[in-house]
Nucleic acid binder design. Sequence first.
RNA 1: GCGGAUGUGGCGGAAUUGGUAGACGCGCACGGUUCAGGUCCGUGUGCCCGUAAGGGCGUGGAGGUUCAAGUCCUCUCAUCCGCACCA
Length: 789
Amino acid sequence: MTEYDAHAIEQKWQSVWAEERTFSVPNPTPGQADESHFYMLEMLPYPSGSLHMGHVLNYTLGDVVTHYRRRQGTTVLRPMGFDSFGLPAENAAIKDGGHPLEITERNMKAIRTQMHRMGWAIDWEREVSAHEPTFYRWTQWIFLKFLERGLAYRKEAPVNWCPNDLTVLSNEHVVDGRCWRCGAVVETRSMEQWFFKIRDYADVLLDDLATIDWPERTKKIQTQHIGRSEGAEIVFQIDDLDLDVPVFTTRPDTLFGATFFVIAPESSLVQQLAEGNDEVLTYARISAARPTEERAAREKSGVFTGRYATNPVNGAKLPIWVADYVLMEYGTGAIMAVPAHDDRDREFAETFDLPIVTVIDDDGRLINSAPFDGQRWQDAKRAITDWLGEQGKAEPSVNYRLRDWSFSRQRYWGCPIPVVYCEQDGMVPVPLDQLPVLLPEVDDYRPKGKPPLASNLDFIRTTCPTCGGPAEREADTMDTFVDSSWYFLRYTDPRNDAAPFDRAIADYWMPIDQYIGGIDHAKGHLLYSRFFVKVMNDLGLLGFREPFQRLFHQGWVKLDGKRMSKSQGGVSPNELIDRFGADAIRIYICFQGPADQDMDWTPDGIEATVRFVRRLWRVVHEAAAQPASPAGVDTPLVRKAHETIARVTDDIGRRFVFNTPISAVMELVNELSKAPGDPAARFAAETAVSVLQPYTPHVAEELWQALGHDERVMDEPWPRADQAMLHHETVQLVLQVNGKVRDRVEVPAGLSEAELIEHARASEKVRAHLAGVEGRVVVVPDKLVNIVV
RNA sequence: GCGGAUGUGGCGGAAUUGGUAGACGCGCACGGUUCAGGUCCGUGUGCCCGUAAGGGCGUGGAGGUUCAAGUCCUCUCAUCCGCACCA
């Protein structure tokens, strides 16, 4: 027996797999019989640096599943690529002082090497990167399809502006009022921007959550983000102006309690209502410009316009105020204020000394609301809406918190938006056959507040595809989340140069059977991708409605309480591979705890997993020197082996837990080492190597050979536990008195209740606690007898 | 404020259907092998009382249901995460 040499073994097998293209999976040929297949995917990395331990956990989990499924006889598609366009990669390049293309490709190279060294079973022949023209050509193509269908549009709107990254951000990427990448406080600016009409899909995005197997918390986050709320739109008339202003409310039952009326500072109504009123106009201008964060500070501010609105239920004259606690983007930008039954309205009323009228009593019935007095508020909602509806002053309405997705960025490193602007023809899409619109190489790519491409005249100046006259190209680029909304489709048919993918091939592999990635993408990438798939389904490009059938979030790997975001000294995967080998790291990261919970990174105990691999190495070699285990041999060791198979299979396959299988194999190895010469030693060793193989693919192959096999263990069918071997001849019977364990005895399995009770009463220890009293008896067959006195 | 997750030895964690709490590993202690050290092997290790036999306590806290609760119910505390003036 030679010493265990992780590096020699790992390099050897990694070379073999690369040469033999072991993990490359061909697409089905037309007419081929449908075979069992599985699409395993983990979220692709940003090449903004090299991998950290969080990635190692993510991709190792995917790898274990990949091997496990392969060995179930399933063809597993498991591709990889790079989210190489966009802020993360570009900011990394700026920091490193190089060109984004150069830095990005350098990082990609480093990551590929790390992935190779971890031994992950990846089909590299399907690799795609967002920044390659062969990929973004089709990002542009898909954009144009959206545009054609009216789902992409340009609009002047208040948007989130990051003063540090000098670009617009989507709502999903403003976190606590700050930029998701750099942490700068985001400002509000009114700019003409590109949007995707994700709001049109709010209902289906909500409803179809019921059809997918996702963690409930993720569904909750999306549900909350979409924020569907049902109510009514009620029309208020503005005195003297002959103007009808609708408001949205979820509580039409409180209409009689409305005592004032408020409009948002950004509302176009302000100009009409406050003409010549400088106080109001100044307030509106100043508060509209306040940063979102400051505006969300609780203190209520506002100004009275001097005008009144008429409450349609009772003709009451409600003073109209302008106040910045009313948002332009939600509902109609105007509200009826019911201070008795709304905390914000109450606070405002108290600040400005406005009347408060209670219209629902403690029993939940309407008061001060004739003719609806006495009705339960839940019923009155409907009744008042119907009543006003008959007069044409109300109709049921639904509102969403979800805003359309702002996806244009004033940055260089992204997919060019393929439209041109012509004086004659206005905005003109670039014809499909002229794609891709190539991102030009520029020297000065740094953000300046206006898109860097705008000053690149070679790029900007073009001709109009419609009239042939002079035109200018769009200078904004796309959000990186556009790329990641469809990359998983490109993997299915990555070299197609006639279409983004062939529909039949995408329909064959998709939807993804198992997706693994961080929960930080719950309302960004995971929502956008669902939207893209639904649109593409509506466009007839594919035959399914959801991209990710089953989703799992790995926990964060934390260092000093903070999420790992880049490789830090001492904990970089490369250094750990150098010191301990990939197999030991793979075991370690899985063994640390439940994969969906956060873990604090400590290197304590990583030596232990190396020690375990060495122990396995030694024990298996010792067993390999033994004669082959005869069929039908029945020893405690052979039973332990079958038990291990059953546990590991259930844990990975059904429960989707990855730490306890390692404990199970450790137990088996412990028993094997304590049973030298056991006739089942070879069988136990083979079992240990076989079920550990998804975790430790390199050393498993080496040990499989040592056990005398020519085949690869990764190609061996997953072992099956012999049910007969799981059945025990004797069981340990727990004897309780008053629910407390007093004795344990070994008895034959399958005894009758009477026999079990007899055993219990025969126990000295039980008798000592019974003191001669008979007692009532509870029996759990093969497990427990509890005597209650 | 709303929504969600978590809480078990000195530490990471296990306990899958209400039925032996603490598997597996780290750490620690003692012993052995090798001996420059580490490696490696063995034994022990929830807490308290007791030389021992044995007994008591024990899954953040308080109640409850049950023959039996880490697991179910009610309340509560702590930590973390998501949302947050969304009418």
